[in-house]
Nucleic acid binder design. Structure first.
Lengths: 188, 188
DNA sequence: GAGATATAATTAGGTGCCTAACTATATAAG
DNA sequence: CTTATATAGTTAGGCACCTAATTATATCTC
């Protein structure tokens, strides 16, 4: 379990444990240095992944957000309202408007006014948009799978579990100080 | 181990496993749905954390990047070259210039021309900058620690290990298709 | 109906980070 | 010495996403 002969993650990751410890010691804080290390590494990983993701999707003339919008459309019979898209993607409606603008310019989606509610403008996945998704699927999913290829099946389950709990903990950054997200899921 | 009575990560996370599976089935791809789920969840977590981080640092009048720059300065006796900062932070020199511009405007760092090399302009952590770090340290580190508070000590080690390997795998998104990440793990 | 209020989408403007081009200085080659 | 090349930092312009304000439509209350 804790024998450090083989599975050390001494990848040249930033920051190191000593670096975290030094920061904490400087102010005599009663904080677990490894906790800080986990948090910092996750931040670094998130930033790296975000950047890599943009590079990945740019190969297909898309951005991360625009791909996610197309994929969500595909998952919903090719038609959704901007507000639904915003909800599903976890971004604002303003952001969705911007994504649609470019996708429409490139012919991957189109807008259609609703007869039910004059305020609504449904977004439609065009045939060209569907074709784009079809064409990129093999490479896209192969790369995603390769990304976690260094983890075996069991490790993937463990990672999902741990990542899920850390994700819950992210609210500690934004919420009230001292309010623990304990066991129960706080679906804000 | 695989009894699903307690440790289910049914956090309302997006996407779900069925969602990932549906996408793969649509194109008859030979891909492990859980691998896609791990990749997607990590992307979502990274984005969420990045956003939360900006909110966190904005409480102190900083951004994530500007805090990291200040902290790195503090770790290097309060003086560094922009190129060193760029290296340490993993961003471009252009980005560092922008970060310094605002930090200097706010009086947290200053620039000083070098006598050795006329091209260099050292960045200095001002007393006000050091004070800012000192003041925010308790809350900052407490929040980071709270973020991983749902993981016990052992789980943190495991998470670090797994995260490290997935981080290595990120190169699968940007590199040559089919080229395995160099970290040669022998337990496959 | 008329006004107040709610909602859908958009526009306007801002932040963070990027790439590529540029300026100024240093160094190497002839 | 002069010209070519490399390097440090900055500037210019772009993308993704945000918040706040705006426009247009719907609905509720009188």
């Amino acid at each position: 379990m804790n024998n450090n002969n083989k599975i050390i993650n001494d990848i040249d990751a930033i920051p190191s444990l000593v670096q975290s410890k030094r920061q904490i010691d400087r102010y005599n804080l009663d904080i677990d240095a490894q906790a800080i290390l986990v948090a910092s590494r996750l931040m670094a990983a998130g930033a790296k992944l975000g950047h890599a993701s943009e590079i990945h999707f740019s190969r297909f003339g898309l951005s991360t957000g625009r791909y996610r919008l197309l994929a969500d459309l595909e998952d919903n019979e090719g038609e959704e309202l901007p507000s639904q898209l915003a909800e599903h993607l976890g971004v604002t409606r303003a952001t969705v408007t911007g994504l649609i603008d470019i996708l429409e310019r490139d012919g991957l989606v189109s807008r259609r006014s609703s007869s039910d509610d004059g305020r609504q403008r449904a977004v439609i996945l065009t045939e060209e948009g569907a074709k784009k998704l079809r064409e990129m699927a093999p490479e896209h999913f192969a790369r995603l799978e390769a990304m976690v290829g260094l983890l075996n099946i069991d490790e993937r389950s463990v990672f999902l579990d741990l990542l899920g709990r850390v994700t819950q903990g992210i609210s500690a950054l934004t919420g009230e100080l001292g309010s623990k997200p304990k066991g129960n899921i706080s679906n804000e």
